[in-house]
Design a protein around this nucleic acid. Structure first.
Lengths: 189, 189
DNA sequence: CCATAATATAACAAATTGTAACACATCTAT
DNA sequence: ATAGATGTGTTACAATTTGTTATATTATGG
């Protein structure tokens, strides 16, 4: 069994049951206690689970504050709760506004609609809303925030590049990011 | 059952019923009374419940979210507007809560007061409120957010280290960060 | 007020779990 | 081929959790 495969199984179990015990996992997968601890550390470092004494528990996502003045319906793409730090707003030709939970969903929406006249996204570092046209997007950093693959938005390309040095990923403009996203999400590659 | 899991169950029961009795919990979970007392002390130290003779009761206000509480007065240190992405909350022995605008002010407050029983800070990447004792602080990165020098809070030391790779600064625990801060802020070095 | 029962706390030992360091194997890219 | 990165297991040691015991502290009914 591949390492990544085992880790995904562990993560699935955490999300299904809310918790896992390290000793059980070691016996179940037939690996050493140390290997399981490394798996849990891996999940913990990416924010996918929380390591506790004896195992790991699911991340509690409720403590993230919803965006101020957010519409009740949640993300227009996936329905998830709207978050201020990853806010994404599309302005449509008919005056309607669509809110997305994160740049991932926002760019998906943008790609799928022809009636969007402008789009704003929250700069991940400073929180200011900026024009998507002028933003730099970091696609696929090793950081789990909302939808996967993670996409972060930066007002300054230089700051995005600094972030990339630590977390990896590709720094793209909004058109490139859309293309990359559509390719990675395609069901029939 | 994991220790953390039992403590979360106890906390849920406190929040649902308003109170719990130590003797009942010991019988319910099949552990000694001493273990339950330690669990209640744990919840008390984090400001999640209040320990009373015979058990514990819910905190006066349910939420520890700074935005949910009244941020009326601004930062307790500098008076600046409170920001959710850099939230910092100090829980005092008398039940009062102090809100700081960022870890800079939060750690300054923490250093200057002896009656703080616990402190929470918002993880800069994920936005979750975490215990300051377990957090990693990045002191002096090349990024201006609130007070200078900038201090960022990370739930995971690994993520803090990644951030440091791009933005520089020193990754410290809360005690080291306090010491560093006091030194850099001293008027007469 | 005092006696008594219930609860809280401190200190210790035992068991379990976490972590660091090292050796070794496998895979990858130049 | 070879150097580097990654994953794994073993070992030794540190840290956490837990129960027990003994000793405070608190509540309550005379």
């Amino acid at each position: 069994m591949l390492t990544e495969e085992r880790r995904q199984h562990i993560l699935a179990q955490i999300q299904a049951a809310g918790k896992v015990q390290a000793a059980h996992l070691a016996a179940h997968f037939g690996v050493s206690r140390m290997t399981i601890h490394r798996d849990l550390a891996y999940l913990h470092a990416r924010g996918w689970a929380r390591k506790v004494f004896g195992g790991a528990v699911a991340m509690e996502t409720e403590s993230v504050e919803p965006a101020a003045g957010a519409p009740a319906g949640g993300c227009a793409m996936c329905g998830a709760r709207l978050r201020q730090r990853t806010a994404f707003v599309l302005q449509c030709a008919d005056g309607a506004r669509l809110h997305a939970c994160c740049p991932h969903c926002g760019l998906m929406l943008l790609a799928g609609r022809g009636d969007v006249v402008s789009a704003l996204a929250a700069d991940f570092l400073h929180g200011r809303m900026i024009n998507v046209r002028d933003a730099a997007f970091l696609v696929g950093p090793e950081l789990s925030l909302c939808c996967a693959p993670t996409i972060l938005c930066f007002a300054s390309r230089a700051e995005g590049e600094r972030f990339r040095q630590g977390f990896g990923g590709d720094l793209l403009d909004h058109l490139q990011a859309q293309a990359s996203l559509q390719q990675s999400m395609a069901l029939h590659p």
